[in-house]
Design a protein around this nucleic acid. Structure first.
Lengths: 244, 244
DNA sequence: CGTCCGTTTGAGGATCATCAATGTCCGTGG
DNA sequence: CCACGGACATTGATGATCCTCAAACGGACG
């Protein structure tokens, strides 16, 4: 449903939520260069580099929108606190992701670091002004936003599954495809805790644990230290992912 | 989406998916005017008006991206076909919504009309070019896209619930807030079938039916003809929605 | 070596999916 | 005008899956 309930100002309902813009050449190893040097320069001129230890809150739900952030190093999570006190993780954020989604001038999610993190902090109004002047730059953000929508839709498909092992396998599959955490020798890094995983997958902590056990027992996936996974039986893994 | 099929360009991974831009003054009764007359004129100059009967396919998943659409009248659904043959409805589309989300130059969802529909069809490449020239116009699209992300996140929260009645109640709540279908005397219109609802809520058709029965039996919601709902006990309704 | 936090494992209860049958609405044709 | 047929919706019974509560386990760190 895309009907905003905005009252007076046309676009006061949200600052753009931005994610995935690679504006720093060092951000990843790929050769893609989405922005011109001038655009990159304009962005970095606005940005402040911030370093944060694990478990730091970047901003809280309902806080006034002030900055847009771009992850440079580390992994973060964006989540919402539900009335019952439970949490739902909307997304994990990786280097290159842009975040700071707001509604009516307030952030909609709380964002917290999982690992040590380095990120760019850009004042929202300055960024908005820049985007209004530079349509090409804005188009990069627009493209990244659409990517985020696709990720959200995949998340929805995961959540609609009933079996815990299948959800977990789909999550692993997404991580692997994005290669966001880096796959060292076939090992997929899982920086987040079982609790984070449970809150992202819409499962209880115990169910996630049982799912890993089941995947291991069935010889489909290997886990190491709880923070790394390797797909052992590719055929059955793919079958599980696609068996919905 | 809006990624023209330009091969050489850096951001070929996706064109933006656009939805929710109100570029037609007649689209709804609200006084909001997001675009200037000139922008409106530029858009309408590119658009073709299309009328479709119920159950028409607007475009299919994996088809080559060619047009972006904006709903003017009627209700549609965007869904994906899963390997098992099951369907997952990603979103319902209402007047003012923009759709045509693509990835790698192919639509990611199938879009089908539910009611009789009138929509604008805009060639993707022409729209992209226009957006690249007009940063203000593009910003409206960007804002609408962020709105779509928030909707997707709400959808995820709904899907993470375990109880069918709660999911259904949250859906009703969203419909009511958006007032998309028009609430005539407190009645919320439900143009979609129970099957559509089930595929959106991640439930079986039977569970949706049982959920409506339960809500009626408990005196919380009234249903009429299966395509209209009215909240009888507001307090308990809100409690149900917020009890997660 | 003991504590703390996160994880794993177990048993019982709750909820939904599935399979199957019945019921309802509505358009069609006799 | 009424009877039939098909699509859609409801209701019932059974089995599968997960959540909750509870307890045991493990590694990190002082």
């Amino acid at each position: 449903m895309a009907r905003p309930a905005q009252a007076t100002h046309p676009h006061n309902d949200s600052g753009p939520s931005l994610r995935g813009v690679h504006f720093d050449k060092e951000t990843d190893g790929s050769a893609q260069t989405l922005l011109t040097d001038e655009q990159r320069q304009q962005l970095t001129a606005l940005a402040t580099l911030i370093s944060l230890p694990p478990r730091s809150i970047v901003y809280r739900e309902d806080a006034d929108l002030a900055w847009i952030f771009i992850a440079r190093q580390g992994v973060l999570k964006a989540f919402r606190e539900l009335p019952s006190g439970k949490r739902r993780v909307a997304a994990f954020l990786f280097p290159g992701d842009v975040f700071g989604l707001a509604e009516n001038g307030r952030y909609v999610n709380t964002v917290q670091t999982i690992t040590s993190t380095v990120l760019y902090r850009i004042p929202n109004d300055a960024l908005t002004e820049l985007l209004r002047r530079d349509a090409d730059l804005q188009y990069q953000f627009l493209a990244k936003i659409t990517h985020e929508i696709r990720e959200g839709q995949r998340h929805s498909i995961v959540l609609a599954r009933r079996d815990a092992a299948g959800r977990f396998a789909m999550f692993l599959s997404m991580l692997e495809k994005n290669q966001l955490t880096g796959t060292r020798g076939g090992w997929i890094q899982l920086p987040m805790s079982r609790t984070d995983l449970a809150e992202y997958l819409g499962l209880s902590l115990e169910s996630v644990s049982r799912a890993t056990s089941a995947l291991t027992r069935r010889g489909i996936v290997d886990f190491e230290g709880g923070h790394a996974a390797r797909i052992v039986d590719r055929a059955r893994f793919e079958k599980l992912v696609n068996t919905l």
